[in-house]
């Protein structure tokens, strides 16, 4: 691939980075990344990955933009309320960087469609807002040997880890979804909007590092931060031999949908 004059200028701040250079930028431009969930985490991730020139961005989301999303889902604007999120995001990406090819999947991921959706991508970014999807994404990526970035946020806290085949997966750390009764009620939940941006952009950085092939990915480490104290830490984790999906005797060998608790607070 030969970069045009315009591309050399657009991506000049990447290209002058020794660890990226023209070669790394070309890898980014050949990259195919799937963002599952174009909400709090997926929105900032999509903006940065589009700006970075990722060749193909897949967007998966079955929701429409709600007024309550705009506090943190920065790819969606006020006039987008009521519009399917994947189309709202696609429009912004086209404006940020027309080089990026966007593939929209206006649906949720389930056990029976996720393997087919992820198969053509190099990397999957989990930007979902519920445990059923998080565990499903993990299991699908482990079974299909697909690298992915996990991201979770709650109130003032965030966590992320990167999976590549052979290293610790999300289930190595969190064996199975928390029991429904343990999950905080809607009124206890909530999230500071900027936290979503902090975490989503960290996930985007992991994607770019993966594509370029430089640096140390957040594998076998769980990064945790609390924005009230502005305290960051990484906890070493390792592949768990008893992991139900990637361990020595896996009990999960096909994908199943976890039950999804229902919340009546408007999403």
């Amino acid at each position: 691939m030969d970069l045009t004059e315009e591309q050399l200028e657009r991506y000049s701040r990447h290209i002058i980075l020794q660890d990226v250079s023209v070669e790394g930028q070309e890898k980014i431009m050949n990259g195919k990344v799937l963002i599952i969930g174009t909400g709090g985490l997926g929105a900032p991730a999509a903006l940065y990955l589009a700006a970075a020139g990722v060749g193909t961005l897949g967007l998966v989301d079955g929701d429409v933009v709600d007024l309550s999303n705009l506090q943190r889902q920065v790819i969606h604007f006020t006039p987008d309320v009521g519009k399917p999120k994947v189309f709202s995001a696609q429009e912004k990406i086209a404006q940020i960087n027309p080089d990026v090819k966007v593939i929209t999947h206006n649906k949720r991921v389930f056990a029976d469609n996720i393997a087919d959706i992820i198969k053509d991508y190099d990397f999957v970014l989990d930007g979902t807002d519920n445990f059923a999807a998080k565990f499903l994404i993990n299991d699908a990526c482990v079974l299909e040997k697909k690298p992915f970035s996990h991201g979770g946020i709650l109130r003032f806290d965030g966590q992320t880890m990167t999976y590549v085949p052979g290293e610790a997966c999300y289930r190595c750390v969190f064996n199975s979804p928390p029991p429904k009764g343990a999950v905080p009620t809607c009124s206890q939940a909530g999230v500071l909007g900027a936290i979503a941006g902090m975490l989503g952009t960290m996930q985007a950085a992991e994607v770019l590092k993966y594509l370029v092939g430089k640096g140390d990915l957040l594998t076998n480490r769980l990064l945790i931060f609390n924005a009230l104290r502005m305290d960051f830490r990484t906890v070493k984790v390792k592949k768990n031999p008893d992991c139900p999906v990637c361990g020595n005797n896996p009990t999960i060998t096909t994908l199943v949908d976890e039950e999804q608790p229902v919340c009546d607070l408007k999403r």
Partner: peptide
């Protein structure tokens, strides 16, 4: 000892 909290999306949970 580490207590690692489950974090979903901050909406449903």
């Amino acid at each position: 000892i580490d207590f690692l909290y489950f974090m979903g999306g901050g909406i449903l949970y």
